[in-house]
Design a protein around this nucleic acid. Structure first.
Length: 295
DNA sequence: TGTTTACCTGTAAA
DNA sequence: ATTTACAGGTAAA
Protein backbone atom coordinates (compact mmCIF):
# COMPACT_ATOMS: atom_id res chain seq x y z
CA UNK A 1 0.00 0.00 0.00
CA UNK A 2 1.25 3.44 -0.97
CA UNK A 3 1.50 5.85 1.93
CA UNK A 4 0.84 9.52 1.46
CA UNK A 5 3.89 11.61 2.32
CA UNK A 6 3.28 13.70 5.40
CA UNK A 7 2.74 17.27 4.30
CA UNK A 8 4.17 19.43 7.03
CA UNK A 9 3.98 23.17 6.77
CA UNK A 10 7.25 24.88 5.91
CA UNK A 11 9.22 26.30 8.79
CA UNK A 12 8.98 30.06 9.02
CA UNK A 13 11.69 32.25 10.54
CA UNK A 14 9.99 35.63 10.78
CA UNK A 15 13.10 37.52 11.91
CA UNK A 16 15.15 36.07 9.09
CA UNK A 17 12.56 36.97 6.47
CA UNK A 18 12.11 40.51 7.74
CA UNK A 19 15.86 41.06 7.93
CA UNK A 20 16.69 39.64 4.52
CA UNK A 21 16.39 42.79 2.44
CA UNK A 22 12.93 41.98 1.13
CA UNK A 23 11.06 44.55 3.18
CA UNK A 24 12.01 47.41 5.49
CA UNK A 25 10.62 49.38 8.38
CA UNK A 26 9.60 46.59 10.75
CA UNK A 27 10.07 47.19 14.48
CA UNK A 28 10.91 44.65 17.13
CA UNK A 29 8.70 45.02 20.19
CA UNK A 30 9.50 42.47 22.87
CA UNK A 31 8.97 39.11 21.15
CA UNK A 32 6.94 40.54 18.29
CA UNK A 33 7.63 42.23 14.99
CA UNK A 34 5.35 45.18 14.26
CA UNK A 35 4.93 46.56 10.81
CA UNK A 36 2.81 47.25 7.78
CA UNK A 37 2.58 45.97 4.24
CA UNK A 38 0.28 48.08 2.15
CA UNK A 39 -2.95 48.64 4.08
CA UNK A 40 -2.40 45.65 6.35
CA UNK A 41 -0.86 45.84 9.80
CA UNK A 42 0.95 42.90 11.33
CA UNK A 43 2.10 41.66 14.68
CA UNK A 44 4.30 38.67 13.98
CA UNK A 45 5.90 36.52 16.62
CA UNK A 46 9.14 34.72 16.08
CA UNK A 47 8.03 31.11 16.17
CA UNK A 48 8.12 28.30 13.72
CA UNK A 49 4.93 27.62 11.81
CA UNK A 50 4.39 24.37 13.66
CA UNK A 51 3.92 26.22 16.92
CA UNK A 52 2.30 29.43 15.85
CA UNK A 53 -1.35 28.58 15.32
CA UNK A 54 -2.28 32.21 15.06
CA UNK A 55 0.02 32.65 12.10
CA UNK A 56 -1.24 29.53 10.33
CA UNK A 57 -4.82 30.65 10.65
CA UNK A 58 -4.16 34.09 9.23
CA UNK A 59 -4.56 34.02 5.44
CA UNK A 60 -2.75 37.36 5.01
CA UNK A 61 0.32 36.01 6.82
CA UNK A 62 0.11 32.84 4.77
CA UNK A 63 0.27 34.86 1.59
CA UNK A 64 2.86 37.34 2.86
CA UNK A 65 5.41 34.57 3.38
CA UNK A 66 4.35 32.39 0.45
CA UNK A 67 3.57 29.47 2.75
CA UNK A 68 1.26 27.74 0.31
CA UNK A 69 4.27 26.65 -1.71
CA UNK A 70 5.01 23.56 0.39
CA UNK A 71 7.70 21.87 -1.61
CA UNK A 72 9.60 24.79 -3.04
CA UNK A 73 12.81 23.87 -1.22
CA UNK A 74 12.70 20.33 -2.56
CA UNK A 75 12.23 21.76 -6.03
CA UNK A 76 15.16 24.12 -5.59
CA UNK A 77 17.40 21.32 -4.37
CA UNK A 78 16.52 19.22 -7.40
CA UNK A 79 17.13 22.07 -9.85
CA UNK A 80 20.33 23.11 -8.10
CA UNK A 81 22.04 20.63 -5.77
CA UNK A 82 24.67 23.32 -5.17
CA UNK A 83 22.07 25.10 -3.02
CA UNK A 84 22.08 22.38 -0.37
CA UNK A 85 24.14 24.29 2.22
CA UNK A 86 21.94 27.37 1.78
CA UNK A 87 18.69 25.45 2.01
CA UNK A 88 19.89 23.56 5.09
CA UNK A 89 21.08 26.50 7.10
CA UNK A 90 18.25 28.87 6.07
CA UNK A 91 15.26 26.59 6.38
CA UNK A 92 12.98 29.31 7.74
CA UNK A 93 13.69 31.72 4.90
CA UNK A 94 10.75 32.43 2.60
CA UNK A 95 10.39 34.54 -0.50
CA UNK A 96 7.96 37.23 0.59
CA UNK A 97 5.04 38.42 -1.47
CA UNK A 98 4.45 42.05 -0.55
CA UNK A 99 1.14 43.74 -1.19
CA UNK A 100 2.33 47.34 -0.80
CA UNK A 101 3.74 48.25 -4.20
CA UNK A 102 4.19 51.92 -3.33
CA UNK A 103 5.87 50.99 -0.06
CA UNK A 104 8.18 48.53 -1.75
CA UNK A 105 9.12 50.82 -4.63
CA UNK A 106 9.94 53.81 -2.45
CA UNK A 107 11.74 51.68 0.11
CA UNK A 108 14.09 50.43 -2.59
CA UNK A 109 14.66 53.99 -3.81
CA UNK A 110 16.49 54.42 -0.48
CA UNK A 111 18.86 51.50 -0.98
CA UNK A 112 21.43 52.44 -3.67
CA UNK A 113 25.03 52.85 -2.46
CA UNK A 114 23.79 52.62 1.10
CA UNK A 115 23.94 50.38 4.15
CA UNK A 116 21.19 48.45 5.92
CA UNK A 117 21.17 50.52 9.06
CA UNK A 118 20.71 53.78 7.23
CA UNK A 119 18.18 52.29 4.82
CA UNK A 120 16.05 51.25 7.79
CA UNK A 121 16.27 54.79 9.19
CA UNK A 122 15.29 56.32 5.88
CA UNK A 123 12.35 53.98 5.35
CA UNK A 124 11.21 54.72 8.89
CA UNK A 125 11.35 58.41 7.99
CA UNK A 126 9.12 57.72 4.99
CA UNK A 127 6.67 55.81 7.18
CA UNK A 128 6.46 58.87 9.43
CA UNK A 129 4.63 60.68 6.61
CA UNK A 130 1.95 58.02 6.69
CA UNK A 131 -1.27 57.68 8.65
CA UNK A 132 -1.10 56.09 12.07
CA UNK A 133 -3.29 53.07 12.70
CA UNK A 134 -3.84 50.79 15.67
CA UNK A 135 -3.53 47.03 15.99
CA UNK A 136 -4.07 45.27 19.31
CA UNK A 137 -3.43 48.51 21.21
CA UNK A 138 -0.18 49.17 19.34
CA UNK A 139 0.31 52.12 17.01
CA UNK A 140 1.73 51.41 13.57
CA UNK A 141 2.24 53.82 10.69
CA UNK A 142 0.97 52.90 7.27
CA UNK A 143 3.22 53.84 4.34
CA UNK A 144 2.23 57.21 2.84
CA UNK A 145 0.27 57.35 -0.40
CA UNK A 146 1.68 58.70 -3.67
CA UNK A 147 -0.07 62.04 -3.18
CA UNK A 148 1.66 62.53 0.17
CA UNK A 149 5.05 61.42 -1.16
CA UNK A 150 4.72 63.81 -4.06
CA UNK A 151 4.39 66.82 -1.78
CA UNK A 152 7.42 66.02 0.40
CA UNK A 153 10.24 68.36 -0.57
CA UNK A 154 13.75 67.32 -1.52
CA UNK A 155 15.08 69.84 1.00
CA UNK A 156 13.14 68.19 3.78
CA UNK A 157 14.36 64.73 2.80
CA UNK A 158 17.94 65.98 2.68
CA UNK A 159 17.49 67.25 6.21
CA UNK A 160 16.37 63.74 7.04
CA UNK A 161 19.75 62.51 5.67
CA UNK A 162 18.50 61.00 2.44
CA UNK A 163 21.46 62.48 0.58
CA UNK A 164 21.21 62.52 -3.20
CA UNK A 165 18.35 59.98 -3.04
CA UNK A 166 16.12 62.78 -1.70
CA UNK A 167 15.53 64.08 -5.21
CA UNK A 168 14.05 60.84 -6.50
CA UNK A 169 11.26 60.44 -3.94
CA UNK A 170 8.96 63.33 -4.95
CA UNK A 171 10.01 63.06 -8.60
CA UNK A 172 9.01 59.40 -8.87
CA UNK A 173 5.82 59.98 -6.86
CA UNK A 174 4.75 62.74 -9.27
CA UNK A 175 5.70 60.65 -12.27
CA UNK A 176 3.65 57.69 -11.03
CA UNK A 177 0.66 59.96 -10.36
CA UNK A 178 0.98 61.33 -13.88
CA UNK A 179 0.88 57.77 -15.19
CA UNK A 180 -2.31 57.01 -13.29
CA UNK A 181 -1.15 56.38 -9.72
CA UNK A 182 -2.06 53.14 -8.01
CA UNK A 183 -4.18 52.09 -10.99
CA UNK A 184 -1.04 52.31 -13.13
CA UNK A 185 0.96 50.25 -10.63
CA UNK A 186 -1.75 47.57 -10.54
CA UNK A 187 -1.64 47.47 -14.30
CA UNK A 188 2.14 47.11 -14.32
CA UNK A 189 1.87 44.39 -11.71
CA UNK A 190 -0.35 42.30 -13.93
CA UNK A 191 2.14 42.40 -16.80
CA UNK A 192 4.85 39.81 -17.46
CA UNK A 193 8.34 40.13 -16.02
CA UNK A 194 9.73 41.18 -19.39
CA UNK A 195 7.07 43.88 -19.70
CA UNK A 196 7.37 45.09 -16.10
CA UNK A 197 11.10 45.71 -16.35
CA UNK A 198 11.19 48.62 -18.84
CA UNK A 199 8.35 50.37 -17.04
CA UNK A 200 10.21 50.30 -13.74
CA UNK A 201 13.52 51.22 -15.41
CA UNK A 202 11.96 54.36 -16.84
CA UNK A 203 11.59 55.77 -13.32
CA UNK A 204 14.30 58.11 -12.06
CA UNK A 205 16.67 56.34 -9.69
CA UNK A 206 15.50 52.87 -10.67
CA UNK A 207 18.18 50.80 -12.38
CA UNK A 208 18.35 47.07 -13.12
CA UNK A 209 18.91 45.99 -9.52
CA UNK A 210 16.04 47.99 -8.03
CA UNK A 211 13.75 47.02 -10.88
CA UNK A 212 14.42 43.35 -10.13
CA UNK A 213 13.88 43.83 -6.39
CA UNK A 214 10.55 45.55 -6.93
CA UNK A 215 9.49 43.06 -9.58
CA UNK A 216 10.38 40.10 -7.36
CA UNK A 217 9.17 41.07 -3.92
CA UNK A 218 6.22 43.28 -4.71
CA UNK A 219 5.07 42.50 -8.24
CA UNK A 220 5.23 38.74 -7.86
CA UNK A 221 7.69 38.20 -10.70
CA UNK A 222 9.31 35.14 -9.17
CA UNK A 223 11.84 34.73 -12.00
CA UNK A 224 13.55 38.04 -11.16
CA UNK A 225 17.01 37.69 -9.62
CA UNK A 226 18.43 40.97 -8.30
CA UNK A 227 22.23 41.14 -8.25
CA UNK A 228 23.88 43.45 -5.77
CA UNK A 229 27.51 43.37 -4.68
CA UNK A 230 26.87 40.51 -2.20
CA UNK A 231 24.81 38.37 -4.56
CA UNK A 232 27.41 38.83 -7.27
CA UNK A 233 30.23 37.73 -4.95
CA UNK A 234 28.27 34.64 -3.89
CA UNK A 235 27.27 33.85 -7.47
CA UNK A 236 30.87 34.04 -8.69
CA UNK A 237 31.99 31.55 -6.05
CA UNK A 238 29.07 29.21 -6.69
CA UNK A 239 29.31 29.12 -10.47
CA UNK A 240 33.02 29.51 -11.03
CA UNK A 241 33.19 33.06 -12.33
CA UNK A 242 36.55 34.79 -11.77
CA UNK A 243 36.50 36.57 -8.42
CA UNK A 244 37.77 39.85 -9.89
CA UNK A 245 35.06 39.98 -12.55
CA UNK A 246 33.17 43.24 -12.06
CA UNK A 247 29.37 43.39 -12.20
CA UNK A 248 28.90 45.23 -15.45
CA UNK A 249 25.54 45.75 -17.11
CA UNK A 250 26.40 42.89 -19.43
CA UNK A 251 27.34 40.53 -16.57
CA UNK A 252 24.18 41.53 -14.74
CA UNK A 253 22.08 40.50 -17.70
CA UNK A 254 24.00 37.29 -18.24
CA UNK A 255 23.88 36.19 -14.61
CA UNK A 256 20.14 36.87 -14.38
CA UNK A 257 19.49 34.86 -17.50
CA UNK A 258 21.59 32.01 -16.16
CA UNK A 259 19.56 31.99 -12.95
CA UNK A 260 16.32 31.92 -14.94
CA UNK A 261 17.62 29.18 -17.21
CA UNK A 262 18.64 27.07 -14.22
CA UNK A 263 15.75 27.75 -11.84
CA UNK A 264 12.96 29.07 -14.04
CA UNK A 265 10.18 30.63 -11.98
CA UNK A 266 12.14 29.73 -8.84
CA UNK A 267 15.07 31.96 -9.81
CA UNK A 268 13.99 34.62 -7.33
CA UNK A 269 13.77 32.14 -4.47
CA UNK A 270 17.13 30.63 -5.42
CA UNK A 271 18.59 34.13 -5.44
CA UNK A 272 17.19 34.77 -1.97
CA UNK A 273 18.94 31.73 -0.50
CA UNK A 274 22.25 32.45 -2.21
CA UNK A 275 22.15 36.11 -1.24
CA UNK A 276 21.07 35.54 2.33
CA UNK A 277 23.66 32.80 2.92
CA UNK A 278 26.35 35.22 1.82
CA UNK A 279 25.02 37.93 4.15
CA UNK A 280 24.85 35.54 7.11
CA UNK A 281 28.51 34.75 6.59
CA UNK A 282 29.39 38.43 7.04
CA UNK A 283 26.98 39.11 9.86
CA UNK A 284 25.35 36.07 11.46
CA UNK A 285 23.87 38.33 14.14
CA UNK A 286 21.53 39.91 11.60
CA UNK A 287 19.40 36.82 12.06
CA UNK A 288 18.63 37.86 15.63
CA UNK A 289 18.01 41.55 15.44
CA UNK A 290 16.16 41.23 18.73
CA UNK A 291 19.50 41.08 20.47
CA UNK A 292 20.69 44.25 18.76
CA UNK A 293 17.58 46.32 19.18
CA UNK A 294 17.78 46.07 22.95
CA UNK A 295 20.75 48.43 22.97
C1' DT B 1 27.92 50.05 -27.07
C1' DG B 2 31.16 49.81 -23.26
C1' DT B 3 33.91 52.13 -19.23
C1' DT B 4 34.68 55.55 -15.74
C1' DT B 5 32.93 59.00 -12.26
C1' DA B 6 30.31 61.60 -8.91
C1' DC B 7 26.95 61.17 -5.60
C1' DC B 8 24.89 62.04 0.55
C1' DT B 9 25.95 59.97 4.79
C1' DG B 10 27.89 57.05 8.33
C1' DT B 11 31.10 53.85 9.99
C1' DA B 12 34.93 50.80 10.08
C1' DA B 13 39.63 50.26 8.79
C1' DA B 14 43.98 52.08 7.42
C1' DA C 1 43.84 61.91 14.98
C1' DT C 2 42.83 62.08 9.90
C1' DT C 3 42.04 59.94 5.90
C1' DT C 4 40.17 56.40 3.00
C1' DA C 5 37.07 52.90 1.58
C1' DC C 6 32.83 51.31 0.85
C1' DA C 7 27.90 50.18 1.59
C1' DG C 8 21.39 46.04 -1.19
C1' DG C 9 23.50 51.38 -7.62
C1' DT C 10 22.35 54.82 -10.86
C1' DA C 11 22.92 58.16 -14.35
C1' DA C 12 25.61 61.08 -16.81
C1' DA C 13 29.88 61.99 -19.01
Amino acid sequence: MKTEPVRTLPVLDVSLCLSAGQTFGWKKHKDDWLGADGESLYILNQMTMGDAKKLVENPAVFKLFGLSDFDRNERLLKLGPELEPMLCSLQGLRLMSLEGTVQSLFSFLCTPNNNIKRIEQMVTSLFSFGVQKTIENSHVQVFPCLERLAEVSEIHLRQLKFGYRARNIPVVAKELLARGGVRYLDQVKSATYQDVLPQLLSLQGVGPKLADCIALFSFGKSEAAPFDVHMWRAYKKLYGVAVDEPLTQKQYQKAGEHMRHRFGLDAGAAHQFIYCYEMMKDNPAAKNRSADSAT
